[in-house]
Design a protein around this nucleic acid. Structure first.
Lengths: 153, 153
DNA sequence: TGCAATTGGTTTCATTTGTAACTATAACGA
DNA sequence: TCGTTATAGTTACAAATGAAACCAATTGCA
């Protein structure tokens, strides 16, 4: 056998990750928990998938984007955006036109029905965010903002 | 028309979410970016999916768990765990035995081959975590830890 | 011009994932 | 001890997702 002593515990031999203190793992749990809570609010109410809601949220904020620009803003891939848009347009929630000077590009905006859904969902999403942030005091909230800015830069 | 003035801009009428400052959105981007970077390290090298790696990581730390306990620890659902385990056992990376006093439960541990993979991947995962944390100074790291503790409590 | 390379977007097909139903064992209460 | 209910885990089927091929419009440049 090796120089290592026989009775060395597995943890010393192998140094397993301590998931409960491992940043990527903890971020993943936190992110999924929050996103799921928001999704639960709107999925059944409006028959809306997470990707569809993301597309709607970015079109609410930036009217007239192309599909590619939506993909950039949502950090989704273009196939996912294309499919979400197909459903949203079919449901009459998004209006799609063709760009004047480039017929490949679409020009996207929420329809009246799309805005109505947005105006119902957005306050719920904000309320969930507030619930989460309520667990922190003012100082912690400031630090969190600063830390996220740095990590996402 | 309503009492609202005709020329009120959409942003005032509808108050769209500002995704770039919306906590759930930012957490999701950050979490996915980090997890993907780690996954890129091991997926091709070991033909290992994210769910399989999570199962291995928790078995490295807590030997002899049942599938249900793995699911609890990883925050994955039991079907995902069952499938990951099927592949891991088939690949000889996890040993599955039957519990002495309850024949429904399995008793799971990493095989020698499983440990070898673990011992290759775990340091890479830790290195990625260090890369991320290197963007923060000592004070920010302490706050982050404290904030995550509170949000996950 | 005109033709190759690029870009916006969709479709196709294979893989992954989620939900529900199912099997086997165990626990509990009449 | 029998019948009901609960639990561990798997299977089957549907829906979601990703990668690559694809079409159409545009750009760049010989």
């Amino acid at each position: 056998m090796s120089l290592r002593h026989k009775s060395t515990p597995a943890s010393a031999e192998h140094a397993p990750l301590q998931l409960e203190h491992f940043l990527p793992y903890r971020l993943s749990i936190l992110s999924n928990t929050i996103s799921q809570a928001i999704a639960d609010d709107y999925q059944s109410r409006h028959d809306l998938s997470v990707t569809e809601w993301r597309v709607m949220a970015v079109l609410a904020r930036f009217e007239g984007l192309s599909a590619r620009e939506v993909a950039e803003r949502t950090a989704m891939d273009k196939v996912a955006v294309s499919r979400a848009l197909a459903r949203l347009v079919a449901a009459g929630r998004v209006d799609r036109a063709v760009h004047d000077s480039d017929k490949r590009r679409s020009v996207l905006k929420l329809s009246a029905a799309g805005w109505a859904i947005h105006d119902d969902v957005a306050p719920m999403a904000r309320a969930r965010e507030r619930e989460v942030l309520a667990k922190l005091d003012a100082e912690e909230r400031q630090w969190l903002e600063r830390i996220l800015d740095k990590l996402l830069a």
